[in-house]
């Protein structure tokens, strides 16, 4: 009984069925184990995060300069920015907006710098559903190449106060 001490010496070898099950499980675990690096190296599927710190004030300034330089208009009070091909792109999470709205070109690689100037936010790119944690004080650097033109939205999926559910940003990709 599992509620009483085992009656006899219990360090016994496993039965055949148990051995088969455990071997299958181990092999399966090993397959999963090797899949991870394979996906990374062969599939090239991992984000290329370069861990970097940046003070929220500094990030705010860099984003401000970036907007200033490449601004092409405004939509609902939020600046619309069109960076040149291959430029570093800055995206700021701030209660409760993603600033600026970006206009990008299909097939061009951009280096995204995403951070927050207040609380944590959740960068959630729709409709492809790619999600990254945005942490104040840290620059989430992503190399992104838009592969299809159209309008994309960024929602916030980390609780960031009572307006959290209104936080939506936008990226427009043109041919």
């Amino acid at each position: 009984m599992p509620i009483t001490s085992p009656e006899t010496y219990w360090w016994k070898p496993a039965d055949k069925e148990e051995k088969i099950w455990i071997s299958v499980a181990i092999v399966w675990c090993l397959i999963l184990f090797t899949m991870m690096p394979l996906w990374h190296f062969v599939g090239g599927q991992n984000p290329s995060v370069e861990p970097m710190k940046i003070r929220p004030d500094d990030f705010d300034k860099v984003t401000g300069a970036f907007i200033e330089k490449y601004k092409i208009g405004e939509e609902s009070g939020i600046p619309v920015v069109k960076p040149p091909d291959g430029a570093d792109v800055y995206l700021k999470g701030q209660m409760w907006n993603w600033i600026p709205i970006l206009e990008l070109k299909k097939g061009v690689n951009y280096k995204f710098h995403i951070s927050s100037v207040d609380l944590m936010h959740g960068f959630s790119l729709q409709p492809m559903n790619m999600n990254f944690q945005i942490v104040p004080g840290h620059d989430n650097i992503l190399n992104l190449t838009p592969t299809a033109s159209g309008t994309y939205h960024i929602i916030c999926n980390e609780f960031c106060g009572v307006g959290h559910h209104t936080m939506v940003g936008k990226i427009v990709v043109k041919d």
């Binding site: 499980a25 995060v49 970097m52 942490v135």
Partner: peptide, 29 residues
């Protein structure tokens, strides 16, 4: 923390592809 900006890719691969499966194995048993 797999989508956090703080851990390096090498760290994340190591983190997701290792002994964690030994705990999974225990549940399988």
């Amino acid at each position: 923390l797999l989508t956090d900006p703080t851990l390096s890719p090498a760290h994340k691969i190591w983190n997701t592809g290792y002994f964690m499966y030994m705990a999974v194995l225990a549940s399988m048993i």
